[in-house]
Design a protein around this nucleic acid. Structure first.
Length: 561
RNA sequence: GCGCCCGUAGCUCAGCUGGAUAGAGCGUCGGACUUCUAAUCCGAGGGUCGCAGGUUCGAAUCCUGCCGGGCGCGCCA
């Protein structure tokens, strides 16, 4: 049982005695250390029900509380009626022991009934290289997936491949135009086509790989060849870019499968059966307004073709049929207006609350204080690969994750390329490497699991006790980040933890304060501090893993010149 | 015009299921420093939380209205 849980159950018992069971017990860690390790507002919340002033209620609660049993050293009524608690040092030692015992599992949880969650992200059209905005979606989607895994959910990472739409026709036409140019024809790329330099490269490669099949092909056959070849080729490129970025999908679900497996007809029949479809103006409409959309939506256009909504509904209906409890989609900001109609359509199928959409806002890249936009390769955007090859994958991922996904972000390339501790990624990784360095220096095997008794009562300084409390917060940070699908909370926590650990380490610089050094002469003190260093190491490593970053044993010095 | 997101220190951003004196990093300023290999460390200054109302014992946080910025509002995808 953790420190909070002990305290919570003790408080709960008292509330029972007072006849106000069921009051929501909020325990929080006060910002101000003078307010103790834990603080609760239960007295203020229940003052109304007891018809007594909050401070009086607080005093009464304290009177009945079994402090020792709750792992509390002292408690006090403060301010308008807060009750502040300070933990016993035995309780602090127990917290650290738990970290050392759980080691690689510290911060993980295993719920009784795990949910099956499909996280769909990136889902870029296979019409060109991935750019930085896709990178943010990739980092965030994978970060959310990892958080859910750490909280015990069963996660499936899925990429929806739009291989059947108009965009693909345009891609094929663009490659075809480039190919005909190679044959000496005057064949301009269609206005609505793809004009990036990479299309020329595709045409040349297709010419080599498909050579003989192209020569005799009719115009429509050649377009089909290009369509099929280019989609496979670009999909493979995207997959390679993502893997090199540390993101691996469990499944690439092609839109064409929705058609091939007859899901369109099934879905339309399902909706029609629910009396939610009607004909008007020569088109077929879905009554999404019944489910909160601001207007009804067309399913089948006047010309008899489907709107993009149809395959999308069919696809998400299929996700539910595949047995997932929850679908999380990470979408670009340009699709946010699409969320209400999609959710309305799913609600129409009895799938309300099945789909959660996380919106990823735009990324601007800042280099040398100026906004960078141009890329030689892609024409009008910076590719994801260009970015992470320049900064390294750890840095790029972290920078995307350290901001909330739903706000626009400025990606400061100068800071990303800075290898000092100004760069938050390196600050955290240095702190980890620093602990590993101490282990090497101290002749300790870091992988070895802790067992037996440790003289943890020797951790007496404020820095040390604060650090233990900080490490104890980690599981709660993971839980909150997962619940809010907000990896940036983990980044904030890691930076704070690294800062505290670095401060602790530096204060023990042997040239200044040898008595504070981790590797102290006193064997017990040394052992206790090494245990704390190991706790720091565990939390930083696990935190970096949650984010999908490496936790280096040592930092490589930059090459000269 | 309507909808969504945003507006917090010079800059980039946390904090937003209401809680005690609003935080971090960078930059600035002032001191130290050559190691427990570690590309430094310590400290200081810096805010009408866009504006105005409202709810509340208590509002950066919730509600309303403005102002400013971004995005979206197709029988396009």
């Amino acid at each position: 049982m953790s420190d909070v849980e002990r305290l919570r159950s003790a408080l709960s018992a008292v509330l029972d005695e007072l006849g106000i069971a069921g009051v929501d017990i909020q325990l929080e860690r006060p910002r101000n250390p003078e307010h103790g390790d834990w603080s609760t507002n239960v007295a203020m919340v229940s003052a109304g029900r007891l018809r007594k002033p909050p401070r009086e209620v607080a005093a009464e609660i304290l009177d009945r509380l079994d402090l020792g049993g709750a792992g509390v050293r002292e408690a006090e009524v403060a301010g308008p009626g807060f009750i502040n608690f300070r933990l016993t040092s035995a309780q602090l030692q127990a917290l650290l022991k738990r970290i050392l015992e759980e080691d690689e599992a510290y911060g993980r949880r295993e719920p009784e009934s795990p949910e099956r969650v499909v996280v769909e992200f990136v889902s870029a059209n296979p019409t060109g290289p991935l750019h930085v905005a896709h990178g943010r979606g990739a980092a965030l989607g994978d970060g959310i997936a990892r958080l859910l895994e750490w909280t015990g959910q069963v996660v499936h990472r899925e990429f929806y491949v739009n291989d059947a739409g108009v965009q693909i026709d345009r891609l094929a036409a663009s490659v075809d135009a480039r190919w005909r140019q190679l044959q000496g024809e005057n064949a301009p790329i269609p206005e609505s086509g793809y004009h990036g330099d990479y299309v020329g490269g595709l045409a040349r490669e297709a010419d080599e790989e498909l050579a003989d099949r192209l020569v005799d092909a009719s115009d429509p056959d050649r377009l089909d060849l290009f369509r099929e070849w280019a989609v496979e080729r670009l999909k493979a490129d995207q997959d390679r870019d993502l893997r090199d970025f540390g993101v691996a999908f469990d499944e690439w679900y092609p839109e064409s499968r929705v058609y091939e497996e007859g899901l369109i007809q099934e879905t339309l029949a399902d909706l029609t059966g629910r009396d939610l479809v009607y004909e008007a103006d020569g088109a077929t409409w879905l009554r999404t307004t019944t489910f909160g959309d601001d207007k009804d939506r067309v399913l089948v256009k006047q010309d008899g073709t489907y709107t993009y909504l149809v395959p999308d509904i069919a696809y998400h209906r299929e996700k539910a049929r595949r047995g997932y409890d929850l679908a999380i989609n990470v979408w670009g900001a340009d699709h946010h207006g699409y969320v209400p109609r999609m959710q309305a359509a799913l609600a129409a199928l009895g799938l309300e609350d099945f789909l959660v959409v996380e919106i990823v806002q735009m990324v601007r890249i800042l280099r040398g204080g100026q906004e960078a936009k141009l890329s030689k390769r892609a024409g009008d955007f910076i590719t994801l690969r260009e970015l992470f090859e320049e900064t390294g994958t750890d840095v790029a991922r972290y920078f995307f994750l350290m901001r909330r996904g739903d706000t626009q972000m400025l990606f400061d390339l100068d800071l990303a390329l800075d290898h000092s501790e100004k760069n938050p990624v390196f600050k955290v990784q240095y702190a980890h490497a620093r602990m590993m360095s101490i282990f090497r220096k101290g002749g300790v095997e870091p992988a070895q699991r802790w067992s037996g008794e440790l003289p943890l009562d020797r951790l007496e300084t404020d820095d040390e006790q604060d650090l233990v409390k900080q490490l104890a917060r980690f599981p709660e940070v993971v839980r909150r980040a997962a619940a809010g699908r907000a990896p940036h909370l983990v980044c904030d926590y890691l930076e704070e933890t690294a800062g505290m650990a670095n401060g602790w380490y530096h204060s023990g610089n042997p040239s200044r304060n040898p008595e504070l050094a981790v590797l102290a002469d006193d064997p017990d003190l040394r052992e206790a501090r090494l245990a704390l260093a190991r706790g720091v190491r565990i939390v930083l490593r696990n935190g970096l893993r949650v984010l999908g970053l490496t936790a280096p044993d040592r930092m490589e010095r930059e090459e000269q010149g």
